[in-house]
Simulated assay, not measured.
Amino acid sequence: MDWMTSLQGLIGGILIGLSATWLMATLGRIAGISGIIGTLVTARPPGDSAWRLAFLLGLISGPIVLMLAGGGAGNVAGAPGEVIGAPAGGVPLMLLAGLLVGLGTGLGSGCTSGHGVCGLSRLSVRSLVATVTFLVTAIITVFVVRHVIGGGA
């Protein structure tokens, strides 16, 4: 890893922390992506969906602005000129994985951004348990896929 990659990660982490702090300080809301997106349409009170839409547009437009400014696409592209490569396991597996992630965020009452970033910073024991569960599940999944099934590099 070179210094530029480390610097980009540091700046990205600072921006995530600042945006989560800003959202909590100004609106009293937790920057949990699954909750923000999940209640975008059904937001109560009705006027509460404007900030949710702005947050979602910021998630999408940030990387686009970075790429347009010549910052590249990070490590998601498989070849020069690609924005993102094809799903490693194919589209059906990607859709199934997305569905499982959605179900998991519902069962876990949040996602890694809500629990891992915002919950841990508030010293929430519930978020600590959720984050450890996310990480252990990810470690087991990578181990099974790479070493038991043999499907990854």
Rank of each mutant, 00 (worst) to 15 (best):
G9K: 07
L10Y: 07
L10P: 00
G13N: 04
I14N: 04
I14V: 15
G17N: 05
S19T: 14
S19L: 13
T21P: 00
G28W: 08
I30P: 01
I30F: 02
I30K: 06
A31M: 14
G32S: 07
G35D: 10
I36L: 15
I36N: 03
I36V: 15
I37T: 12
I37Q: 09
G38I: 02
T39M: 05
T42G: 02
P45F: 06
P45S: 14
S49Q: 06
S49L: 03
L53S: 06
A54D: 06
G62A: 14
I64S: 04
L66R: 07
L66A: 11
L68V: 09
G70T: 07
A73V: 13
G74A: 12
N75H: 09
V76R: 15
A77S: 13
A77K: 03
P80H: 05
A88Q: 11
G104Q: 04
T105Y: 04
L107R: 07
S109N: 11
G110V: 05
C111M: 03
C111G: 03
G114A: 11
G116Y: 01
V117Y: 02
L120D: 04
L120A: 07
R122C: 00
L123M: 13
R126T: 12
L128T: 11
A130T: 10
V132D: 08
T133P: 05
F134Y: 15
L135C: 14
I140F: 01
T141N: 08
